[in-house]
Write a protein that binds this DNA or RNA. Structure first.
Lengths: 130, 130
DNA sequence: TATTGTTATACTCTATAACTATA
DNA sequence: TATAGTTATAGAGTATAACAATA
């Protein structure tokens, strides 16, 4: 499983490199697309990483203007991190790019097997647990 | 997929910790069990890691006497790394331990789905590529 | 008191480069 | 010239601890 994941990540990195992105940037955009504007704390929980790393990650994406920090009106300590329009556009491109890599990765499977595999993987990965 | 692999590795680490092992030690023993005595170069290729890391890894396992370095009679530069009897015994225990973790990981699947999942995973991971 | 975001720091993992002894 | 193993080192990536502002 580890080996498969390494292959998958490598595919993703290769696919995203032309866009100037790393897998983690894709992950951030995926979370924001999923949940909408979110606090950094929530992003950390969702991604399963430390809050201090979210700082750096959001910094990077903010500097590139794909993401922005809005003040949370209901909690002056917190930000709401949000995709900018440019970020949404970029994420769409990134999805296209990674989809191609995914096809390569799953090339050995029939269409039915792919569907099955993705489904089972969802269960094993504990989908929806954050 | 990445998330699933993280869960899998964590399961493995937790399962192996009581034996004083890390996932990489298990990996080394698995390779040696598979291929028999092997040069460090071959182990590196097989595991997909750098040769310098194999040095450290074998050092650790040799100090614990689970592995030994035999001189390769046909190439005086090379060692043949081999499991000791204690290493073989340990690997059997480690297999039992990780099998329990595996059951936890695949708990959400039926028996048939598990079998299918493992098969598909083998294809995606490019089984036998090294 | 507890929590959000931040910074500084240290630790782990990993690869690279330079070396030796062989081939 | 090239390869097996080793060492030292440097670069990622990551978590931890301590802090200010706010709850």
């Amino acid at each position: 499983m580890w080996r498969g994941a390494l292959r998958a990540r490598e595919q993703a990195e290769v696919a995203l490199a032309p866009l100037g992105l790393r897998a983690r940037h894709y992950g951030l955009m995926a979370i924001l697309t999923d949940t909408g504007p979110a606090s950094q704390r929530r992003i950390a929980t969702q991604a399963g990483i430390d809050a201090s790393r979210v700082v750096t990650l959001v910094d990077e994406m903010e500097r590139l203007q794909f993401v922005r920090r809005l003040k949370d009106p209901s909690d002056r300590r917190a930000y709401l991190v949000d995709l900018t329009p440019a970020g949404k556009k970029l994420f769409a491109e990134a999805r296209t790019a990674t989809a191609a890599g995914e096809r390569t990765l799953l090339a050995g499977l029939t269409a039915a097997e792919r569907k099955q595999f993705v489904r089972l993987l969802g269960v094993v990965a504990g989908e929806g647990l954050g």
